[in-house]
Nucleic acid binder design. Sequence first.
DNA 1: TTGAAAGCGTTACCAA
DNA 2: TTGGTAACGCTTTCAA
Lengths: 342, 342
Amino acid sequence: MELANNNKLTLAGLAKLAGVSTSTVSRALNDNPLIKKETREKLQALATKHNFSLNRAASRLRTQKTNVVAVILNLTDSTDQSISDPFLLKVVGDLNQALNKSGYELLLSNSFMATEDWANYFISSSRADGIIVIGQGKSTTKIEKVAESGAPLVVWGDPKAQSNYAVVGSNNELGGYLATEHLIKTGCKRILFLGDPEHAEMSERHKGYSRALKKHDIEVIKGLTLSCDITSTVAYEKISNLILEKGLTFDGVVATSDMVALGALKALKERYVNIPNDVGIVGFDDIAMAELFHPALTTIKQNTKSAADIMVEQLLAQFHGQKGKSVVMGIELIERKSTRSS
Amino acid sequence: MELANNNKLTLAGLAKLAGVSTSTVSRALNDNPLIKKETREKLQALATKHNFSLNRAASRLRTQKTNVVAVILNLTDSTDQSISDPFLLKVVGDLNQALNKSGYELLLSNSFMATEDWANYFISSSRADGIIVIGQGKSTTKIEKVAESGAPLVVWGDPKAQSNYAVVGSNNELGGYLATEHLIKTGCKRILFLGDPEHAEMSERHKGYSRALKKHDIEVIKGLTLSCDITSTVAYEKISNLILEKGLTFDGVVATSDMVALGALKALKERYVNIPNDVGIVGFDDIAMAELFHPALTTIKQNTKSAADIMVEQLLAQFHGQKGKSVVMGIELIERKSTRSS
DNA sequence: TTGAAAGCGTTACCAA
DNA sequence: TTGGTAACGCTTTCAA
């Protein structure tokens, strides 16, 4: 039998039950050492017993702090409004872990929200204390607007691109370089770059691709850079069309993501092109299933877990009044079976 | 030059600027038809001009409504604390879309949070108005606790399992049945079930598997049900070990997810088992990359997009005082190349 | 070590 | 159609 008391228990109610003031209960529940340990524990026990939970709306209003971070999936260039790339979703998952560890909660959003002014929408409105944007996309105007507003902000993107905000991301140029060089060293001569060079991160990878070719005295041919959305289906179509129209004009592929690599892989295998002997493929990301493809995908691994930790760290620094720094994450070539062994 | 006015603009400030009362501004910004259209638009324009944004902490406190829904990834059985299954992440993405459409925001959490009492943590504390749990996991005690608290709740899981809360999910039994029957019809005699029958959803799929076998007068053999976590790596190991120890004792595989199917696929291909001629494989989910595997994966498609819409619908119903209903989503066999053609 | 009371920025009732 | 004002539930300053 429950008490017929519909009124939710508040701090004041709990204080009355305990015979102390609201101040004392508030301090006790927030583990304030001002309160005698004994009383603190007694009150905490009482709170648990009565299933009491502090009203966050009220404390947020009072303290002007939400302990929430807005994470925005910046999908500007995808026609499909839903997130499909497992890599980006992995980043979200890892951010969730990292934020929770630091006592923050994750408010998930994407760039298709009605609002244009993220800082206003999330920060001024007291919805969140800071913003993490995943992906710089093709246009960074929305991001820059947030930066100008002075709101705490960290972006997952290309940290080498100069910006007035903190960007955490992999060394994309080096990734592109290593991928390309690996193909060269395993005997490829005509290497295709598959991806969208308008994208900040992808353009860096393309720079690395060009650098590797030049270093090894291979001509950079325009026709061997194939612009392509970062989805496997588009990659599949692009490669299929290319082969259909011009034949197999390449013997290596540098893909800007594992999903893109997977699309290319399929298109090639359907035409009985042998991987890696006829064409070698290197992906980017090292998503969980990269090693399960057939052949297992050689790829550039990005460490999302430590990236997430660092992003949160840089955001917290801004909460504490410091300036967020851009951080370049190391990457690593993972050799598997989609390229010849070196 | 900005005005040296550090104090954030509030409703009261805006009201003063406009020469009206706070009530009027509040109503105007909430598009209350009580206010003359003219004044409303004037005030809205003024708000945009001054970059004004309502303080949500304050309005949430006042209205006792957050317009936030907590989405909990229930990863009880995974040792790995991060989310890796693209299917579940797709569900999160689709829920985000569906919630946004209805004016709600998504607070992402997982079951590794310190707290045990979800209703208390999210609802009593005014963090969210309702809870969506993704995955019933092996134990449903936490979920039942939420249900008992009376908090608005919708669960993605198996809708056929009886429960005192609203469950939205696919017709898993039928899915298991269709997958198995398809293998039988394409000539398989010894069909392996690969998955964890302790899992609510998986156990339904297993029931369908057994029903199909019985219907076609095939004996249900214990040794052909291989318990397995829902990750591709575990599936890979399980299949590898099975073959190592007992040889190729089966000619068909019903996998409980596409990721599991992918792991099995790899293990088999490494041993030069021909798919689909030696062994046919059917997955479950139809994740984006299912058709990009080699061979393209025959699978049972779950429609996450409409599932997300329905989950939100059922949650909103509870917000409006109605009782949430369990809904069974239809599934569909997608025939590709990992099974012989029928 | 604890208590009284003001105030965070809204909304909504009641009055005009 | 608009305004005055109390109240939402907490935290924190100041006082004891």
